Amino acid sequence: MSLLTFNNDLTSTLEVTKDVLSVFRQSNDKKITIRQGMSISEISEVVSEKIINVVKEQFEITKEDFETKTVKK
């Protein structure tokens, strides 16, 4: 695995060979809450999952609104 390190105060690293679409995969072992002692990677996965869920919900609401407006015309 290749790592990319940025020179900043927090000294963070990113996995550059990680599959980009892995964020969208459904797995049973996903954590849904942030707990003390979690790594930065685990925390970012929880936050990403929550953001994706919010965007999906907003998309569905917008889709339904658009469909109802289209039917009314």
Rank of each mutant, 00 (worst) to 15 (best):
I34G: 00
L14C: 12
L21E: 07
Q26N: 10
S22V: 01
D65P: 00
S12N: 02
N7F: 08
E45L: 13
E67Y: 12
V55P: 01
T33M: 10
E49Y: 15
S27I: 05
E67Q: 12
I51T: 05
N7S: 06
V55W: 11
V55E: 01
K63P: 00
T11W: 04
E42S: 05
K31T: 06
K69A: 03
F6A: 04
S22W: 01
E42G: 01
V71G: 03
T62G: 12
S41A: 12
K50T: 13
S48L: 13
I40A: 14
S48T: 14
L3P: 00
S12A: 05
F66G: 09
S44W: 02
E67I: 04
Q58T: 10
F59R: 07
T62Y: 04
K69V: 03
N53T: 10
Q26C: 03
S44A: 13
S2E: 10
K31S: 03
S27K: 07
M38K: 01
V16T: 12
I40Y: 12
F59Y: 13
D19A: 06
Q36C: 02
T62S: 10
I34T: 06
V71Y: 13
L14Q: 03
E57D: 14
I52S: 14
K50C: 14
N28Q: 09
I52T: 05
K56R: 15
V54W: 10
D19C: 02
M38R: 00
L3H: 06
F24Q: 02
V46W: 00
K73M: 02
D19H: 08
F24H: 05
K73G: 08
K63M: 09
V55T: 02
I52F: 11
V20Y: 11
D9S: 11
N7Q: 04
L4I: 05
S39G: 14
E42I: 12
